[in-house]
Design a protein around this nucleic acid. Structure first.
Lengths: 201, 201
DNA sequence: CGTTGTAGTGGAACGTGGTTCCGCTTCGCA
DNA sequence: TGCGAAGCGGAACCACGTTCCACTACAACG
């Protein structure tokens, strides 16, 4: 936010014009490569698509995680902002939670391999946890709290754990392969059903 | 079974003595490497541990999946056999199902990265699906059917999907890393809770 | 106890992908 | 226009999977 362009904002770290142009080109190329070959498309291929050398790619995005974060930043942001909106517009907090999780699942399932890489405990992917989960977990927590307070779900489930669980369930449901015997949405629905408060006494 | 040694059993495909020795050595080496570095330990390292060349490793186990299957065959077998036993010894089919799933989760969680590789839709890992899931899904299906018939759970959940879901939830819960915020067991319990029949009318 | 066909072996060699490094280019300011 | 430095390209290096084939050593047979 504070580090944006604009005629007046000559921040201390103003990048050169060609550098910013390359960064945009790289983002577009990466986005295209991701839909074509999944989020672990070869770095060389991404650089080639952008018409730059791999050195340039690494200069702008030191790790693959940085690149992924940058490519999907907007969509994550949209998902995060949808949380409060759903809470306000849904009949019950539980319904809002369900719809929000649907959104999250949609996001993951349509990105080949994103879910898989999101769970990796590989050191280089900490940045993914940091940007994706740190942004979304609080949103989920609010929905969870609201639903728990309304007595719709049990109150002892942590948002982080739920998000990780949902993310995990999306692994392998890339529409690229389409195993009809496994539908992440169905299984996530099962998990969400498990949230429901055990019949009150 | 039919391809075992024994003085009398000179099957058409009798392997040379040193070959069988190497195979055993390789299995031991692979098991050791798997606990040390996870199921994607470098092939070279496994061969080195066994004191043989990589060529020998590939001769005996053409793909990594073959190696993994061979290493864990016994444990998968034990898990499969535990199904009917639990069904017979538990108070209700639902309880048997829960305990059996616990067993399965234990198995996956204690093998670094096995769960992850088990979900991979990579062509080379079909053999894993074939040997692991094909063996366990029918066992799970029996438990599921019994529990559904007893009215304990909803009848519309496929064993394959449940197994894949549980397997997915185990990804990233390697005890090696121990993120205390994510406990596969807890989330699987949630999923299983979601199986419970919605309060009957 | 040789001889010999061949199953079995070892490891060099090749392909692929990630990552680094450094000489050259180009920008943008004076 | 000159110049310092930010930025660029891509060759080079490494790690790993996988293949291939000259060589070894087992075991069947004379």
């Amino acid at each position: 936010m504070a580090v944006e362009d604009g005629p007046g904002g000559r921040a201390a770290t103003r990048k050169r014009a060609d550098a910013r142009r390359n960064e945009r080109t790289l983002l577009d190329a990466a986005a295209a490569a991701f839909v074509a070959s999944g989020v672990d498309a070869p770095m060389r291929e991404i650089a080639a698509r952008a018409g730059v050398g791999v050195g340039t790619l690494y200069r702008h995005f030191p790790t693959r995680a940085d690149l992924i974060v940058a490519v999907y930043r907007h969509q994550v942001e949209a998902c995060a902002e949808a949380g409060p909106a759903l809470l306000a517009s849904s009949a019950t907090p539980g319904a809002a939670l369900e719809r929000w999780i649907d959104l999250f699942v949609d996001f993951l399932v349509t990105k080949h391999g994103l879910a898989a890489v999101l769970q990796s405990d590989d050191a280089g992917f900490r940045a993914l946890h940091a940007h994706f989960l740190d942004r979304l977990v609080p949103v989920c927590a609010r929905l969870l709290d609201a639903a728990a307070e309304a007595g719709e779900i049990r109150p002892d489930v942590a948002a982080y754990e739920l998000m990780r669980g949902v993310g995990n369930l999306c692994v392998g449901d890339g529409s690229e392969f389409g195993d009809p015997r496994y539908d992440a949405r169905r299984v996530v629905a099962l998990l969400v059903a498990g949230l429901r408060r055990p019949a009150p006494p």
